[in-house]
Nucleic acid binder design. Structure first.
Length: 492
RNA sequence: GGCGCUAUGGUGCAACGGUUAGCACGCGGCCCUUUCAAGGCCGAAAUACGGGUUCGAUUCCCGUUAGCGCUACCA
């Protein structure tokens, strides 16, 4: 443990769903900040809501973080295992007078009519929310009244006694100095009548206890911050520096949700995105290095990350741009960096061969080098590029129709196979010369033969240049595939 | 409804009082070319609206509008 000045940040998801894009971005920013500052990142699972909690989801969240490459230094801590701390804090606040016992009937989420959530009946929800109790009547109960309620064993919650006048202020690294009227803040609940803490209480108790110095989280918490600031003060603690991140929206500009399709990071992993590409893309959603650079490898992201570059405007998640980033990371890094991912993808598809990990490693590198400029997702290696890794592939219908449309093709391909089989040297130029020689002898344009041959040996029209493909595939395989294709080569 | 936040092309960002308003994705065209990509070049496309302040506003202030957030004994 070093000096007290070390930044300590945390990512605190609640296990009510998978790790979604918004959470991933928050986690990433915390991680980048911690790494940039040489600080510590904690992971804390906020599982105080027994109703909504799905413990089995925790594993998925951890997997998502691992895939993302966000490594935490402490934790995971579970709030469900720290309940005494929250009760103790609530009692303390009760005793100090900062909190008070509330005997009101709990109002369930479903029963309190929400505004705006329902699209029907625009006009008639006026008045339902306007009468909202900002000040709970229990806050002024006399000792006698309180005692009476206790005798009746009425369930009791603990609320915060929010000052009726004055303002509460806090600093936000993104939104600047904030100040709100206390009169606008309701007497919010700290401890529910079932003895479990609310988010407002547990988050503050833990952030104090875990010595968090910077709270980096979604801007949806901006409005909650004054309440938490009040708790910090009442507990005799100094609030940390906040940094609220703009929200990530779907294409329709509403908050990103399941309706917008895949929003869990796991689905992006499955689809074949590279973690580093995903990180690069996410980092630029609500943050800018200050200039026009976009392709920023993780090392540079860490070097350049600063809270001052965080934007205040919500950002729309742009799938196309994410895919573009993926192509960049499929293209630019050294092939060796790509190999582990290609290996995983080949294994996933059941095409992996052990030799590629050893003696044939270099061959794998050549194949990947040839294919990669045409890939957008890792999946491409086992879909259209499948023929590079197995003999078990079929002929794409569109490709057959487009390139196997000449009566003379079967005969020419047979002769090509024979010619290639006799080649004593197997390289780009030898293949090139053999094919072009045959084409001119047959009086056909080289392109016709080239395209037809490509379909015969890799089954696709969309594929790398023919002669390079031939070199990678090798003489035996090319000849065999040419002969195998003959029965299928006929005009449509 | 109340309170708050935000507002640059379709999208993500730059310009933080003076620029022909820049970059990227996407889109269109051209080049390259044996298919498809990648790559290169070119192009269309933005300061929400109205008032101020200022010699000068994308930039500062106010209002309007719009979007979003909070307004739970959810987090």
């Amino acid at each position: 443990m070093t000096a007290k000045g070390d930044p300590r940040v945390r990512f605190a998801p609640s296990p009510t769903g998978y790790l979604h894009v918004g959470g991933a971005r928050t986690a990433l920013f915390n991680w980048l900040f911690a790494r940039h500052e040489g600080g510590t990142l904690l992971l804390r699972i906020e599982d105080t809501d027994v109703e909504r909690n799905r413990p089995e989801l925790v594993e998925g969240i951890l997997d998502g973080l691992k895939w993302l490459g966000v490594e935490w230094d402490e934790g995971p801590y579970f709030q469900s295992q720290r309940l005494e701390k929250y009760r103790f804090a609530a009692e303390r606040l009760l005793e100090s007078g900062a909190g008070f016992a509330c005997y009101c009937k709990p109002v369930a989420y479903a029963s309190s009519e929400r505004v705006g959530d329902d699209d029907e009946g625009e006009g008639d929800d006026e008045g339902t929310q306007t009468q909202k109790n900002i000040v709970c009547s229990c806050r002024d109960l006399t000792d006698a009244e309180r005692a009476a309620r206790q005798r009746e064993a009425i369930p009791r919650a603990i609320r915060f006694r929010v000052p009726r006048a004055g303002t509460t202020r806090f600093d936000d690294a993104v939104f600047g100095q904030r100040e709100v009227q206390n009169a606008e803040i309701e007497d919010f609940v700290l401890l529910r009548s079932n003895g479990l803490p609310t988010y407002q209480l547990s988050v503050v108790v833990d952030d104090i206890d875990m010595r968090i110095t910077h709270i980096i989280r979604g801007a949806d918490h901006l409005s909650n911050t004054p309440k938490q600031t009040l708790i910090y003060r009442a507990l005799g603690a100094t609030p940390p520096l906040f940094a609220h991140l703009p929200l990530i929206l779907g294409p329709d500009r509403t908050r990103l949700s399941k309706r917008h399709g895949s929003t869990s990071v796991g689905s992006y992993a499955d689809e074949g995105f590279l973690p580093e590409a995903f990180r690069n893309f996410l980092a630029l959603l609500g943050w800018s290095p200050g200039d026009d650079s976009e392709y920023l490898r993780t090392k540079e992201l860490i070097e350049r990350f600063a809270l001052s570059g965080v934007s205040r405007t919500n950002a729309v998640f742009d799938r196309d741009k994410l895919e573009w980033f993926n192509t960049q990371y499929l293209q630019k890094p050294a092939v060796e960096e790509l190999l582990p991912y290609v290996e995983a993808e080949l294994k996933r598809a059941g095409l992996w061969q052990e030799a590629w990990a050893g003696t044939e490693r270099a061959w794998l590198g050549q194949a990947v080098e040839l294919i990669r400029s045409r890939t957008r997702l890792l999946r491409d290696f086992t879909t259209w590029a499948r023929a590079f890794f197995t003999d078990d592939f079929d002929y794409d219908a569109a490709a057959r129709e487009k390139f196997w449309n000449d009566e003379r093709l079967p005969a020419m391909l047979r002769r090509l196979a024979d010619t290639l089989a006799l080649l004593t040297e197997w390289n780009h130029d030898a293949c090139d010369a053999a094919l072009r020689g045959l084409a001119s002898a047959e009086g056909v344009k080289a392109g016709v033969l080239i395209n037809a041959t490509r379909v015969a040996i890799v089954g696709r029209a969309v594929a790398p240049p023919l002669f390079e493909t031939m070199v990678v595939l090798g003489q035996d395989r090319v000849v065999a595939r040419l002969r195998r294709a003959l029965p299928f080569v006929r005009p449509h």
